[in-house]
Computed example of a mutant assay.
Amino acid sequence: MKQFYLSLIAFFTWVIGMAQSGGDSTRLPLTDSIQAKKSTFTIGAVYANDASYYGQRSDERLPYVALAAAYHHRSGFYLTGMGYRLLNDSARLASAYSLGAGFSFPLGKSFTADLSYDYSIYPKFSPFLQAANPHSVNLTIARESVVDLSISGDYAFGKTNDFFITPQISRDIDLFNIGRNDLVSFNPSLDMTAGTQHFYEYYQEEKGIRDSILGILMPPVLGGSPSEQNPTIKTTNRFEILSYNLKLPVSYNRNHLKLEVSGQFSLLSKQAQSQPGKVNSFFSAAFYYQF
C-alpha cells in the first residue's frame, strides 16, 4: 500500500508537470453540456472487456457492447439512454437498459455542478454487481483549471441503499494534430471511491440462486456452511474506502466525431467485499458522433 501511495504522488507530479496553458480541451461528448452553448444530440457505441462498478467486478467476467444516446439542451438540461448487451448472454437481445435526466449549471467562473437521476432496468438474476439498486442520484461539483478537480456523491437505491463519494483529479492534454481538423488528446484521471456495500449482499444472494439454476454445486453440497464459504458479508453497512482508480483514455477527435480507447487500473481496498486487495484492469473502446 505504501508503494501505491508513492505512485499516486508521482502521478500527481507528472500530471502537473505535463499541464500546459492554452489550447482547446476536448471532453467526452455525452457529458459536454455547459461548454457547448448550444443544443446537441450525441450517439455512441462502446465495447468493454468487463463491467466495472467503482473499480469492482463481479465473480464472472462480463464483457459487453453498448449503444448510447444523449440530448443536451443549451440550458444545461439533458437526457441520456444506454442499452447493454453482455457478450456471454445469448438468451437476451439486451442485458440491461439505462435512462437518465440531469441538469448542468455554472457555479462561478471555474466551478460547475451537475445533478442527475438514472434508472436502470435489470432482468431477474442479473450478474451485474449493481443490479440491487436500479435508481441512482448523482451530484458532481467540478473545478476547471490547469488540473481539473471534482467530487461526486452517489445515492443508489432499490432493493438496498448505498452511498458513494468519489473525489477525482484529471488533466486534458492535447498530444498532437494529424491535420487541421484532427486532434489526438490524453485525459488521465485518478480517483478514489468510498461507500457502503449493501449491493453486494443482494448480488451474492442472486448469484446463489443463479448458480443453483445452472446446476453449479452450492456450498452445503461442497462441504461447510454458507457463512464459512462467504464470510465477508458482515461489514457492508460501513462507509469505507472501496477502490483507487487510474484511468488512461486516449482520444482521436475530428469535427463532430470522437474515437476513444481507455485503460483503467483499480486497486481494491482490504474492505472491498469483491476480491479485496486485488488490482483489476479494464479496457474499453468507444465511438461518438455529435450532431
Score class of each variant (00 low, 15 high):
S281W: 05
K270I: 00
P188E: 12
P219W: 11
L183N: 13
T40A: 08
V184Q: 03
S274A: 15
A48D: 01
Y289P: 01
G195Q: 10
P106Q: 06
K270R: 14
N88W: 02
K38F: 00
Q204W: 08
R85I: 01
G83L: 06
A101H: 01
E228M: 08
S7V: 09
S104W: 03
S227T: 06
V279G: 00
T31E: 11
K247V: 12
L62T: 02
D32S: 08
T196F: 06
F103Q: 10
Q271S: 15
G22Y: 12
G17A: 15
A156H: 11
D211T: 00
Q204E: 13
S52K: 06
A70F: 04
D59N: 13
K124Y: 12
L267F: 09
D114A: 03
V15M: 15
I9M: 09
N230K: 06
D118Q: 10
R143D: 11
S95L: 06
T232K: 11
E228L: 10
F11W: 14
A19K: 10
F199R: 01
D32Y: 01
F186R: 05
T160Y: 06
N230Q: 09
G263V: 04
T112L: 09
Y289H: 13
P29Y: 06
W14H: 02
T232S: 08
F239P: 06
K207T: 14
S104D: 14
I43Q: 02
G23M: 05
S110N: 14
A96P: 01
P106E: 07
L62M: 12
I213E: 07
Y200M: 10
Q3G: 12
S227A: 12
L214S: 14
N161L: 05
R85H: 10
A113G: 15
L62W: 03
L175V: 09
S126L: 00
A69V: 13
S251V: 01
A36F: 00
D50C: 06
Q130A: 09
Q3Y: 11
Y53V: 15
Y155V: 13
K258I: 01
Y244E: 09
G83K: 01
K37N: 13
L183W: 02
R143G: 09
D148N: 15
T235Y: 11
L6P: 00
N49H: 10
F105S: 08
S52R: 08
N255W: 04
I233M: 06
L217C: 00
I241V: 09
Y64K: 03
Y84F: 15
S145G: 13
S225I: 02
F282E: 07
Y200I: 07
Y200V: 13
S136C: 09
Y64I: 02
H73P: 04
L6A: 13
D114P: 01
S104I: 00
Y64H: 11
A91Y: 01
V15S: 11
S281K: 12
T31R: 12
S52C: 06
L62N: 02
A91S: 14
T13G: 15
P276Q: 05
F125Q: 12
Y78G: 03
T13A: 15
G23A: 05
V261Q: 04
Q273C: 07
R238K: 15
S269I: 02
N187E: 08
I121V: 08
N138T: 10
F282W: 08
A131E: 05
L246I: 14
Q197C: 08
L149M: 14
F199G: 03
Q197L: 09
E201N: 14
N253Q: 08
